[in-house]
Amino acid sequence: GATAVSEWTEYKTADGKTYYYNNRTEESTWEKPQELK
Rank of each mutant, 00 (worst) to 15 (best):
D15Q: 05
V5N: 11
A4F: 09
W30T: 10
T3E: 12
R24I: 15
K12G: 02
Q34A: 15
E35L: 04
V5E: 12
E10T: 09
A14Y: 03
E35W: 06
T9A: 10
Q34V: 13
E31D: 10
K12M: 11
E31I: 12
Y20W: 15
S28R: 15
T9P: 00
A2K: 07
A2I: 13
V5G: 12
T3I: 13
Q34E: 15
Y21W: 08
K32N: 05
Y20S: 00
G1N: 13
T13C: 13
T25M: 03
T25S: 04
Y20M: 00
T13K: 03
E7M: 06
N22M: 01
W30Q: 07
K12Q: 10
W30G: 04
V5L: 14
N22I: 01
V5A: 14
E27H: 04
T18W: 05
G16L: 01
T25A: 02
W30S: 09
T3V: 12
S28W: 15
S6T: 11
Y20V: 00
E27V: 08
E31K: 06
N22S: 03
S6P: 12
K12A: 05
A4Y: 06
E31L: 09
Y19V: 08
K12F: 08
S6R: 10
S6M: 09
T9V: 15
S28H: 14
V5W: 12
T9R: 11
K12T: 12
A4Q: 14
T3N: 14
L36Y: 13
K17G: 05
T13I: 02
Y20T: 00
L36M: 10
E7F: 09
Y20G: 00
N23K: 13
N22G: 00
E7G: 09
G16P: 00
T25R: 02
N22F: 01
V5M: 13
A2G: 13
S6K: 08
T9Y: 08
Y19E: 03
T13F: 03
T9D: 05
Y21L: 03
N22P: 00
P33R: 01
Y19A: 04
L36I: 09
L36E: 07
K32V: 09
W8E: 00
E31G: 04
W8P: 00
K12V: 13
W8H: 00
G16Q: 02
W8D: 00
N23I: 13
Y20F: 07
E27R: 04
T9N: 08
T29Q: 10
E27Y: 04
N22Y: 02
A14K: 12
N22H: 03
T18Y: 09
G16W: 01
S6H: 10
E31F: 09
K17P: 01
A4L: 12
E27N: 04
Y11P: 00
D15F: 05
N22R: 01
T13D: 12
E27S: 05
Y11I: 12
Q34M: 12
V5S: 12
E10A: 09
E7W: 07
T18N: 04
L36W: 10
K12S: 06
P33W: 02
G1W: 11
G16A: 01
T18S: 10
E31N: 07
Y21A: 01
P33F: 03
A2L: 14
G16M: 02
E10P: 05
E10D: 02
K37F: 14
T3M: 13
R24K: 11
V5H: 12
T9G: 06
Y20Q: 00
T29L: 08
K37L: 15
T18R: 04
Y11Q: 09
S28Y: 15
K32E: 08
K12L: 10
S6N: 12
S28V: 15
N23F: 11
E27T: 06
E7T: 06
N23G: 06
W8M: 00
